[in-house]
Write a protein that binds this DNA or RNA. Structure first.
Lengths: 286, 286
DNA sequence: GAGTGGTCTAGACCACTGT
DNA sequence: CAGTGGTCTAGACCACTCC
């Protein structure tokens, strides 16, 4: 079963759960989809393989083209196949899962005060993914924008306050699409205390954002993350290489300093079909 | 803008982000979808309103039925409209968002040792949602199952070990569909120390799982949650009332006791279009 | 039974990919 | 240029909802 080598994800995928099977009339496009799905799961069609041409499948199943295409649409929504205009339909290769844990925050905090040479070795993303710096391609750009109502409310500043907007794109060297889109916001006048922080060419900053904040005397006390999922816009789907039907995970991350003030806020958009986030909650002892 | 009364969610929805507009040929079904989307956002079509019949829209836009339906399919995937066979297409009413925070774990732990009368007042779900116990309808059933490979690995027990499987469904009194499907697992022989724990009719147990574990002398030390999103199966979509195109959020929650042993594991399935999870990560002071 | 969406057909023409 | 998927049409018949 090419798509289910990881036991844990099987469990979450419902494979191990007994689901009450309901007998019902199978529609033509469902029967076709079921058949193709079985062939893929059985390994009859391996990841990367091209499916027979749609016209061929029309003949094989004895149904019309639109009906067949409806079946393929189902499989596409499930992430099993990928359509490539002019080339064919292909069995999707499972993409490298992207792991992200909230233990990264404490790790990054501890790193922030270490010497630069030490900080340069690995970043929080490498910490999460277990990869080397060279495996990742990183792109950053900065811009100064006025705070909208939402941002103003989050930071507790007047609307229109000048904010430093930093956008980051990170992808695996070997892949075409980034696995995270990050838009991070800081109050411009706060970070201006260190002019280096206003210059995108200093990215990637060894030690990350917490190290940058440390350079202007800010210590973080806690981080709050809000997680939701929604369908991607057409642009987001294209940028992340998301197949139609898969969703976007959006994380709103807010950093509070030791005075309880909001010092940073990020909107992190992640592909829903390959992101696994982990959150550890320690509990106080009785 | 009926779908965007909550500022924070606007930000995460991308409304406040400048997205580079790309000029490209608009396809017929995209133009129709754009037009209808605009009408909905403008409030021209209010939540709950029925759209004109598909045949009427075919005349209005001068396109064929399949093309029009393709456009409606887009809007449905975006969660803007809802199709109801035999009734019509309706502008979706935003559903009550379901909030869930990891602060519930510490809250529940503190509660576990309080007197029953105190525990009975509110549960963790009410703590999250800010609702009263009476606003929620709760269903539980228990079953003893053999541990599969995945469960065995998680708990560090041999495959085939007898597990207590507890399934929970929770919904708002006023709504037809539950907002969470929980399958929780415990090692049967561990919980058998208190026979009350094997009986589903004792649910809802005041104080929740941590209180139950307390009754057999187990104290939790930390909770790990793994979060991912995937498309729902047909059954899950139906049970949660998910429109096609929206995704499921799956949380794998593992509870460790003070000896570092796994004592409970849950698979929690939540509707992706209405669930907002919040995770707070405290950081150690410098 | 009237009105609505759901499924399915047969076929035309366009757009993209690779040789 | 051949092969492939993408868009679109006109129309038939079925299934569901509600009066």
């Amino acid at each position: 079963m090419p798509h289910s080598s990881r036991p844990l994800e099987d469990l979450y995928a419902g494979a191990a759960l007994t689901i009450r099977t309901v007998t019902r009339m199978a529609k033509a496009y469902e029967r076709i989809a079921d058949d193709l799905r079985d062939r893929i799961r059985a390994g009859d069609l391996a990841p990367g393989d091209r499916l027979p041409a749609e016209t061929t499948l029309v003949e094989r199943y004895g149904k019309s083209l639109p009906t067949l295409r409806q079946a393929l649409g189902l499989l596409q929504a499930e992430g099993l196949i990928e359509k490539q205009h002019g080339r064919g339909n292909f069995v999707r290769r499972p993409r490298t899962p992207v792991k992200r844990s909230n233990t990264r925050h404490q790790w990054e905090k501890s790193r922030a005060r270490e010497p630069e040479q030490q900080r340069r070795k690995t970043g929080a993303t490498e910490h999460d993914t277990g990869l080397e710096v060279d495996d990742l391609v990183f792109h950053a750009s900065y811009e100064v924008v006025d705070a909208g109502e939402e941002l103003a409310e989050i930071f507790g500043v007047p609307a229109g306050t000048a904010m430093l907007e930093r956008t980051y794109r990170t992808r695996y060297q070997a892949e075409a699409h980034p696995f995270s889109l990050v838009d991070s916001y800081l109050v411009r006048d706060v970070v201006a205390a260190n002019p280096d922080l206003l210059d995108a060419t200093n990215e990637p900053w060894p030690g990350g954002t917490q190290s940058q904040l440390h350079s202007i005397g800010i210590e973080l006390e806690r981080i709050e993350e809000r997680v939701l999922a929604r369908p991607p816009s057409a642009e987001e789907a294209e940028e992340l290489g998301l197949p139609p039907g898969t969703s976007l995970i959006v994380v709103g991350k807010t950093s509070y300093d030791t005075d309880g003030r909001v010092v940073e806020h990020s909107v992190i958009r992640l592909p829903g079909d390959r992101t696994v986030m982990s959150f550890v909650t320690p509990l106080e002892r009785w």
